[in-house]
Every structure is written in C-alpha cells, then in structure tokens.
Design a protein around this nucleic acid. Structure first.
Length: 711
DNA sequence: AAATTGCATGTGTGT
DNA sequence: CACACATGCAATTTA
C-alpha cells in the first residue's frame, strides 16, 4: 500500500510537501528515514527531486548526516554541504573521514595507510544514529548500495570467514550445498593482501563497520527497488504447500494486466508495494524513462507467457489455511535477447522443510532473475562481467550516467560483494557491465563456461549471486564453444539449480542450499530430482539432432510438469496384468499396455482385506463408493454412479462420515507422500523423458503434416 | 611497465 | 537489418 507519509505518526511532516510523487520506495531505502523527523518508515514515495545520482536522499559519507542534494565526492561518496571537508596536508585533497582497517579508528584523512589504499573509498556512511532505524532484519541485506560502495578495500580471509559465521550461516551446510566449491578459501584469497576494488568496505572490515549499527550493518540502503514503470509485470508464481506436505506449484495468470496489483509479483508491483527504488535525476530520469519505456511497452504489447498450466488448484486452498508464509516466485520479464538468460517459468517443487527455510520469516519472495554463462572475458582478469541488457535494465537500477552505481551482491557463502553496475555507450545503445567481479568469480572458482545466476530475495531485495559449474570440461575449457542461446544450456535445469547456490539469508538456515542433494534426500516427493537427473546424467538433449526439435528449457519444464500432473491421472488399463520388476531393491509394476486417463480415486483396504474405491463427485464433492475394478472418466459426478443407485444424485447423503472422509484424505495424502528414492526418480524420469521426447517428435511430425498439408 | 578504463568493432542472432 | 554482446585495443592511470 502506497504511503507518502512518514510512518511516525507524531511526525508533522505533511506528505504532500515532501513526497508528493516519485518513485515508490520499499524498505530500507534511501528515503527510509524521514528527513523531517528521522523516523524510519516504509512504502513511502520518493521526493520528486530525487531523480539523479547526484541528488537525492542519502547520507553524507563523512558526517553521516542525511542529506538531500550533497556533493558527489567520488562515485560512491557524498558529502553534505555542512560538512565542508577538511584540507589534508598530505594529499592536498579534501580530507575524508575514514575508518582505518587495522585499528578501526576513524581517521581524518583516508589515503594510504600502511600500504593499504583507503583514499576516497572508506565509507563511513553508516553513521546513522542508531535510534532512527527500525528495519526488519530481512530488510537489512539489500542488493544495491549506492553509497557504501567503497571500491577499494582489503580482502581479508578472516573477515570473510567472520562474515559467513556472523551471518548465521552454517558453514558445513553451505559447503555441503556448494559441493562444487572447495571447502576452504582459495589460496589466492589467503595470499592476496592486495587491495581489491570490488570488495565492499563492509566485507573488508568484517564486522567493524557493522557493529556500530547493529543489525542494520552495512546494508543500510536499499536500492533494489525498481520503479514501477521499469518493471513490466508479467506473471507470478505462488508456491504453496500441499496438504500432502508436498509443495505445490500454482501458476497465476501471466496475462494479468500490468496495472493490476499482484502480491506475488515483485517485479512490477504497483506503486507503494515494497520494491525497487532507483534514483533518477530530473532530466536524467526522463532519459531513463525513454530508455525504459520501449522495454515496458514491449512487455505490455507482447505477453510472453501465453501458455498456462494450472496445477493442483483443488488441494491448495484448504491446506493453505493458517499457513501464512508462502514463497512467492515472481516471474521475471523476458524480452529481447536477454530473455534467454531469464529463468524458466517454473519453480521446482520443494519440500516443506525447504519451503520453511526459504521463507525464513514471513512472506519471503524469491525472485530468480537471470543467469549468464560466463564468457572468457567475463571470467578473465579484467573483472568485468557483461550483463545481458534486458536483464540489466530489468533488475538493476536504472542508471543515467555511465559510471553507474555500486550494487551489493551476496554470494553463495554469504559474503557480500560490491560491484559497480555501469554501462558503456555502444552503437546508440548500452552495454551493461558489472565491474570488479574478479574476486567474487575467483572465490567461486568460476571459469568461462560456468554459469552465474542472479536472484533476489524479497522483501529486502537481497541480490544473490549463485553459480553453476559447466557440466562438462569442454564447456569450461573452451568458452568459445557456443552454448545454447548464451543463457541456458539445453536441458538446463536452471530453475531447480538456482537454489543450490543461494546463500543463506540473515537468520535463515543454510540447509536449504542442498545443492546436488536434491537428488539425495529421501523425503522428496518428486521435486527437482528429475531435472537434476537430466542435467547430471547428460540426458539426451531434446533437439540435439535437429534445431527444429530444439526445445526451450521453459517448455521442457512445462511439459515435465504436465506430465507429472498427468501421472496422478494415469492408471493401468483395467485388464492389464503387471509384470513386477525390481530395480535397486524397488519393485515396479510394468505394463505392456499404455496407461489410460481417468478420474483420480482413492483406494482403501480394511484389515479383512476388503478393498474399496472412492471417488469424489465433480459437482457436489461428495465421496461415493465404487467397485474396486472400475475406472472413471476424467469427469465424473453422482449421476454417473451406476453402481449405487441410491447415491446416484448429488442430493443423496454421503456414505461415509466426516471423520471417515478425513481418514480417506489422510490416506490419500500418504499415498502421495510415499517416499521416492533418487534411484526410483531417476528411473521414472528417464522413462518419462523418453516418452516426452517421443511425444515432441510426434507432435512436430503432426504439425509438419498439418502445415504442409495446408500448403 | 603494468593495470585499468572506455570505447570500438566484429560476429552471431533475432526480426 | 538491427541489436546484443564478446572482445580487441588505445588511452589513461597507477605502481
């Protein structure tokens, strides 16, 4: 809900006077402190004058005073007019108050100290009076930090480690999750005493800078709120729990009007909803608008997710009652070339445990943003990561000046990095880059061909950088080997893999990052294992033989889910006798004849051995008993109950009591929750994928026939 | 001299 | 043909 009034009710600041119009602002943003009374507030609207990187609400880097239009001292430092600076005798330039990295003392002139480079880069922007801040913990870590982004610092392994631990991260779990990564810091980290411009001051100084501000820490500012007109609202996912303890995927209409508020859409939420906030200057803002609008219009005019599959709608509503936290997966926009980096539309099924862990506190939204296969230059020593334009413009703050802004990113270990998000003019266009990524890339031991993923956790907007190693050495060794669409490997299970590298959130549990353990846990109903399996085992690429057969991973996922859903409806043909085969100590029923579709029913058995089959009427939802051997059509109602004429109308009472119904449903749940081992899943998916491929080929053939037949 | 920075150019892909 | 992007390269900065 938009509010342009200070949340402090005693604050006399008239909203219209201070924030009449402008950008919606979420939590912990630039204007998060009322400039009138200093109170923290949320959901306010930016002052209209806050439209540039020059002007706006920020903190004087030196005295900490909240300023409106201060002087730009450096890319990331701002100075209030009151402060004025002090002439420095040693460097002639104006003195900067900085915190000595060794002693922690504030120094009058930050230049070269003990061989360490501090000049202009030691941010003391955290000098916000403690009492003014009341920000939820989940709002602390933010993706973008336009002020604190000191570019020079020292990579201290101890700090990094401290930070990991300090964030409440279970290192063991993390390491287990990121089994790709080495358990220890890379040697070069240890050895490197060299100043690295990509390391954020907060990281460099460990907790030194955090302590003065308690939980607020180094991420006071929140820039990762994209103005509403920067973010086309495309669609969303609500990930909710099944009453079967199996998370269930719900898809909402992707064609929802852009103007329609959607709680589940982080990108493109209406004004007032916590979201991205971006500084744009008066004139520059217009420039930004210009550059953004075509994109936006593209979104409006071209819905990109026409196909919808709604799954599991019947089960959810009940189960969701009393269950506040939902992990919402917002749908990133996809347009232009960048769409290949945008992640597929489906979020993998996850377990309740993961769900809760992901939720952390209430209402966490995980927004998978995009991913990119690292090129040689991305992974090289230059430290510049080229961002897909569409993604950069969609998920990073609009920048009007080439210098851009510092952005804060958390990596898989919970370390925070500050990159410079900027652009280069390029053929009347822009080329967006993240600068200073080398240490991060190195810490993740990434090479050309590996994939980095970007996600965001809302609220708070923590930008998260994950990674995925190239699946085969060829990819890694030769980055010039073209990868499919530059963004996704064929058959890439990018979505299911996104989580594997997500760092723990503050207060969260790192164990959600189960990495490859998706395939190893025992209580996963089905979830991501299939896709993992595909990737891990290098399952045949759909479309590997022909470009015509090439299938976008999104579509593959979609197909997989529909198939998965169909599994509930598939049953052996009535007359079929299965052959029991044992694979990995698990028995499977193998049928010679293909399965048939039918309405889902529940079977019960009494101790006496008597079996019953139950079906629910589509019209009245009453449960009706059926003979065990009958197979219902997908649509079935009481009037079709030819087996019990006393209950062949919806008005007839149910045969079973409410309690029995509960037992029935419980039994049904248990059935759904049956444990499926990785081996079983592998096998099932293998079969399914074969079927899917066959289906695709068949479909294409049919389409070809139709197409050519019409010519 | 080496590293960094900013821009230009060539290539591949989508329309 | 337009656009995105990987990378080359010259200018600039730093050690």
């Amino acid at each position: 809900m938009a509010s342009n009034r200070c949340m402090n009710t005693s604050c006399p600041a008239p909203s219209s006077q201070h924030w009449t119009k402008g950008w919606p602002l979420g939590s912990a943003g630039f204007a998060n402190l009322c400039h009138n009374c200093g109170s923290a507030y949320e959901n306010l609207v930016f002052c209209d004058t806050y439209h540039s990187e020059e002007a706006g609400w920020r903190d004087c880097s030196f005295c900490g005073k909240r300023i409106h239009c201060g002087c730009i001292v450096s890319k990331s430092m701002f100075e209030c007019l009151d402060y004025g600076g002090i002439g420095c005798t040693s460097c002639v330039k104006r003195s900067r108050l900085g915190v000595d990295q060794n002693s922690g003392e504030t120094i009058g002139c930050a230049k070269m100290i003990d061989g360490l480079y501090y000049f202009d880069e030691v941010s003391v922007s955290h000098k916000i009076p403690k009492g003014l801040i009341s920000i939820r913990r989940d709002e602390i870590s933010n993706g973008f930090d336009a002020v604190t982004g000191g570019n020079v610092g020292l990579l201290r392994p101890a700090s990094v480690k401290d930070q990991v631990v300090g964030n409440g991260t279970n290192e063991e779990k993390l390491l287990q999750l990121c089994n790709i990564m080495e358990a220890n810091e890379p040697d070069h980290f240890q050895k490197s005493q060299r100043v690295d411009r990509s390391a954020s001051p907060a990281q460099n100084r460990g907790e030194n800078l955090r302590n003065p501000f308690g939980e607020v820490g180094s991420s006071f500012f929140n820039m990762n709120k994209i103005p509403v007109n920067c973010q086309p609202s495309v669609g969303s996912f609500t990930y909710s729990k099944l009453d079967t303890s199996r998370p269930h995927l719900e898809l909402k209409d992707m064609k929802e009007p852009l103007t329609q508020p959607s709680l589940n859409i982080t990108l493109g939420v209406p004004l007032g909803t916590p979201n991205f906030v971006v500084p744009c200057s008066g004139s520059a803002a217009q420039e930004d608008e210009k550059s953004i609008l075509p994109y936006q219009q593209g979104q409006r005019s071209r819905p990109i997710f026409p196909k919808l599959i709604k799954t599991g709608t019947t089960v959810n509503s009940e189960a969701r009652k009393g269950m506040a936290p939902l992990v919402r997966i917002a749908r990133p926009p996809a347009e232009g070339r960048g769409k290949n980096q945008l992640l597929p539309r489906y979020w993998p099924r996850i377990t309740d445990q993961e769900l809760e862990q992901l939720s952390g506190d209430l209402n966490s939204t995980i927004v998978p943003l995009f991913e990119k296969v690292l090129s040689a230059s991305d992974a090289g020593r230059i430290g510049r990561l080229v961002l897909p334009k569409a993604c950069a413009e969609a998920y990073f703050p609009p920048i009007s000046q080439s210098e851009g802004l510092p952005v804060r990113v958390q990596d898989v270990k919970g370390n925070e990095w500050t990159f410079q998000f900027r652009f280069w003019p390029n053929n009347n266009s822009r080329m967006y880059v993240l600068e200073g990524v080398t240490p991060c890339i190195q810490s993740m031991q990434l090479r050309a061909g590996d994939t980095v993923t970007f996600s965001r956790i809302d609220p708070g907007g923590q930008l998260v950088m994950g990674f995925r190693k190239a699946t085969n050495s060829t990819d890694v060794q030769d980055a010039k080997i073209p990868t499919l669409s530059n963004g996704s490997h064929p058959g890439d299970a990018s979505f299911s893999r996104v989580f594997q590298n997500l760092p723990s959130r503050a207060g969260g549990d790192a164990s959600l990052h189960k990495s490859e353990n998706f395939g190893g846990r025992s209580n996963d109903a089905s979830g991501q294992q299939p896709m993992l399996t595909m990737e891990k085992k290098g399952a045949r690429n759909i479309g590997s033989k022909s470009k015509r057969l090439l299938m976008h991973s999104e579509d593959a996922l979609e197909l997989r889910l529909t198939w998965e859903e169909a599994q509930d409806l598939l049953r052996p043909p009535p007359s079929a006798n299965p052959t029991i085969v044992t694979i990995d100590d698990h028995e499977f029923e193998e049928y010679d004849e293909p399965p048939v579709f039918g309405k889902r029913t529940i079977f019960t058995a009494r101790p006496t051995g008597e079996q019953k089959q139950w079906a629910q009427c589509d019209d009245c939802s009453k449960w009706r008993r059926l003979p065990v051997d009958v197979l219902l059509p997908p649509k079935w109602s009481c009037s079709d109950n030819v087996w019990d004429l006393s209950r062949c109308t919806c008005s007839a009472p149910e045969e079973i009591s409410t309690k029995e119904q509960e037992n029935l449903l419980r039994a049904s749940k248990a059935e759904v929750c049956q444990e499926r081992t990785p081996q079983m899943t592998d096998l099932i998916i293998k079969v399914q994928m074969q079927d899917i491929e066959s289906l695709i080929v068949l479909t294409l053939i049919i389409l070809d026939i139709r197409f050519f037949g019409n010519q």
